[in-house]
Amino acid sequence: MFDKRKETPEPPPEPAAVAPSTPKEFTSRSSAVIGKTINIKGTISGDENLIIEGTVDGSVDLPQHDLTIGESGKVTADLDAKVVKIDGEVTGDISGGEKVIVSKSGSVRGNIVAPRVTLEDGAKFKGSIDMDPSDSKSTASTPKPTLTSSTSAEPKGTKDLDKAAG
């Protein structure tokens, strides 16, 4: 009637499988992990930090939390998080409420909007970076009336250099 095996507590799941690749920056907080063999199509949202080591095609919406794309992560999606760290590959637009970091192993094709953006040496990036997310549209269309006299003057030395250039 009573199965002793059922009374025996089951061992906890093994988070150790992803621990070695967990970025140091976020190890102090608990994070959900999408493992290397997981493929997801669709929208991901939630109320905790997330590490993606697998493949995601869609969008990730975690505006109050940290998002890490691990070295094995391949994401084709628009990303929105408080802090976004890219160690893997991302194709899509990235919005960081605080900052976006593309590490040396990271590759991004898309546009980044965040108050602070760091590209580490070796990072691959193609797209635009907007570090003035609050009012970029208004500033972009406003010419700056700040030319110094030296650059607003007529060309200097052009003739001499032309001669040298042949």
């Binding site: 990072a123 691959k124 635009s128 970076i129 570090m131 500033t139």
Partner: peptide
């Protein structure tokens, strides 16, 4: 040119919008 870490770091002192087009 290609996205340069040093250029991004330097320009981050401004409220900058950078377009990299290699």
């Amino acid at each position: 040119g290609t996205g340069s870490s040093s250029t991004v770091a330097f320009l981050s002192r401004f409220k900058v919008r950078i377009f990299f087009a290699d």
